[in-house]
Every structure is written in C-alpha cells, then in structure tokens.
Design a protein around this nucleic acid. Sequence first.
DNA 1: AATAGGTTTAACCATATGGTTAACAAATGT
DNA 2: ACATTTGTTAACCATATGGTTAAACCTATT
Lengths: 201, 201
Amino acid sequence: MKKEDSTEHLILDAAKEIFQSKGMDGARMQEIADKAGINKAMLHYYYRSKQLLFEAVFKNVFSLLAPQLNSILNDDSSVETKVTNFTADYTAFMMKHPYLPNFIINELNRNEDFILKLQEQTGFPNLEKFKVQVATEINSGTLKPIDPDQLFVNILALNIFPFLGKPLIKALTKKDDASYAAFITSRKTEVATFIINSIKM
Amino acid sequence: MKKEDSTEHLILDAAKEIFQSKGMDGARMQEIADKAGINKAMLHYYYRSKQLLFEAVFKNVFSLLAPQLNSILNDDSSVETKVTNFTADYTAFMMKHPYLPNFIINELNRNEDFILKLQEQTGFPNLEKFKVQVATEINSGTLKPIDPDQLFVNILALNIFPFLGKPLIKALTKKDDASYAAFITSRKTEVATFIINSIKM
DNA sequence: AATAGGTTTAACCATATGGTTAACAAATGT
DNA sequence: ACATTTGTTAACCATATGGTTAAACCTATT
C-alpha cells in the first residue's frame, strides 16, 4: 500500500482541507472523517485530539511556506534578482494554495504563542543573511538606504496581501474571479518592478 | 440614561470585543452576555440570533474602516499627499484597533458573499475618482505609469499587512512587543516614502 | 488452526451551545 | 389606580460536538 493511501495520511489530507478552509474553530471532526471516508474514532486513534490533529496540520502547512521564504533569504543572487524571483515564485505557489495565507495568519493571530513551537523547528526562516546583504548593497551604492526589516515586510506585504484580502479587493476594484486572477498574474512582475523602482539607486 | 448604557448598546459593545478577538466561530453567546453583564436571553431579545448579532457587529466595524479608505480616495490633494496622509492616519487608527484588520479579512474569507451586503450600504469606498486622478498625474508626467488598481492594492497591502501578520513578522524579525510597536510607528513615514520613491517620476 | 497485534466500526457519553419559554419586574399610557 | 407594553431573568430544551469504549475485523506469525 502506498503511503498516500494509509489511513493516517488520508486523515491528514482531509484535515488539511477542512482546517485550512474553516479554521480550527469552524472545523468539525465529523466533517474531516467524512472527507477522509473513515470512522470518526480513527481521528482520535491516530491523532488523540482535535488540538493535536490541528497542530499536525499546521506544522505540515507551515513547512510548505517556509521554503518559499527561505528562497529569498538564503541564496547568493542580488537583492534585485531575489525580489524578482520571489515575487514570481511566491505568487505562482499561492495561486495553487489559495487558503494557505489566511489560514496561517489567522491561526497565528488566534494563538500568538503557537509560533514559538514553529520557531524551534529546523528550517524556520532566518533573516540574518538577507539583512547583511541589504546593508552591503546600500554601502556599495546599489540600493537606497532602507531598514532591511522594513524592506522584508514590504516584500511580504505586497506578495501576500492580495491573497489575504481577495474578497475585499475584489469588491473595491469591482473585479470578478476571472479578472482578479488576471490581476494577480500581472502582479508576478508588477510587484517586483514596484519594489525595485523604490529601492534601486 | 445615556445611549451607551442601554442594554442594546452594552450588548453590541461586548459582541464587538468578543467577535473581533475570537471570530464568528470562536465566539460564544454566553461569553458575550457575561462581558455585557446581562442575561443571555437578552442577546436574542435584541438581535434574534448569533448570525444577526454578528452581522450587526460586522457592519458597525466596517463602518469604522470605510471612512479611512474614503479619505484617500475622495479628496482633491495630489496622489503624493494622499499617500503620505493615508499612511500616517491609517497606521495610527489601526494601532488603536489592533483586532480590526484580521477580523474583517478573515470573516470576509469565511463568507465571500457577505461583502455584497456591505456594498449596498452608503459610504462603501469607491475608487473611480482615485483612478482618474492617477491617470491624470501619469499623463502630466508627475507619476510613472502604473495601473491604478495595482497602486491602490500596494498602498493597502503595505499599510494593512503589518497588522495582519504581526505574530509572524514578530517571529521572523525577532522583535518583542515594544520593538514591534516602534517598527510600526516608523512605518507611518517609511511606507509613504517607499511608495513615493517607486511611483514618482 | 490458533494466537496476538494492530486496525476499524457502531454505539455511546458528557458536556457545550444556540435558542426558547414562562414568569416576573419596570416603565408607560389612560 | 389600572392596564398594557417593554425589559429581564432563571430554567429549560434540542441538538451538536469532541471524545470513549467494547466488540469485530483483519493480517501476519507460530
């Protein structure tokens, strides 16, 4: 039997879908069991409690996101190249996982201490290299002076917010789903241009 | 008796706090009643159901946010001035209502159709004037070419995201609450500079 | 074939939860 | 003063929900 067909894995897949779309409070154990096509008791057999199943899902989902962040932080290309690649890659990734950003952000707001458990995990994104790199490029006159933390948050904000705020932005800009998808697609390059215009000397 | 002391108002205030911090699914009617210091039956006497109480709260909260958006859209100052004022005002406003952005964003994601009820309300933000203005300033050579919708989303993103993603950003940038507050405060001017650097010809 | 181990299910349990009711109190009008 | 409406409470109800249990069901080992 393949690993993907194991009951434990079926449960995790079903739980990922339900928890991501409805959140911890909105999710129902019975609904997860139904989606997995198994008896509700199996959820507790493999994961003990709703809380532990949720944490397994959260860590799994976060481990999808972390590499996306690390990609911009830990390679040796210039800041300009990183911004360009990150914007394109991150947007493409999020178009495949539309519930992911809101899930992460919302659950971290619901329980601020939960991030502590993630920080201990290997692969938790580290900004040190990025900070040094930005400082170096500012010194060498390639970039205008800017606090690396501020720049990093700006990059995240411009890339993530369109997924978090989709319903609001759709209404404000009067777009339907198709034109919103086109809007997001064009951001793959627009956002990088916007950032680079701002910081390039 | 002052309006603020009426039972109906006590309920709405308590419900605003509970719904904003815990969301529709996480909120408990009993907890709202306890916070308001009244009997649970009163919630149903004045608001019929949890859903209707929630909608009353949501509309009330959204009506706090809408003027903030309208302020950037509907006055006659230049785009540069608007961005500067909006960034400072919006950030100051959000520091006073820290749960508001996540509440709005998350509940709209939970129920995408709900925004339709808001659009009908008077005062729902309208972008037309802003779009014309950006187009005019691009034509006159004041601004670099940019799609007004993209610029608008960028402004929103840079201003709202630091409040939505606070727990995540705190962990990534290794800031405590005090240094995060300072970080946000410096964004009151940093964000405007960042945007203007990018779009000014 | 018998045994032992893990796996799965239906039925069950205790509690939480949104909502209702009937009696009571406090205003309000006549 | 009396009646009527409005506001308030404690007790109650039906259902949903996370979790448990005991028995049944494989499946591999002896």
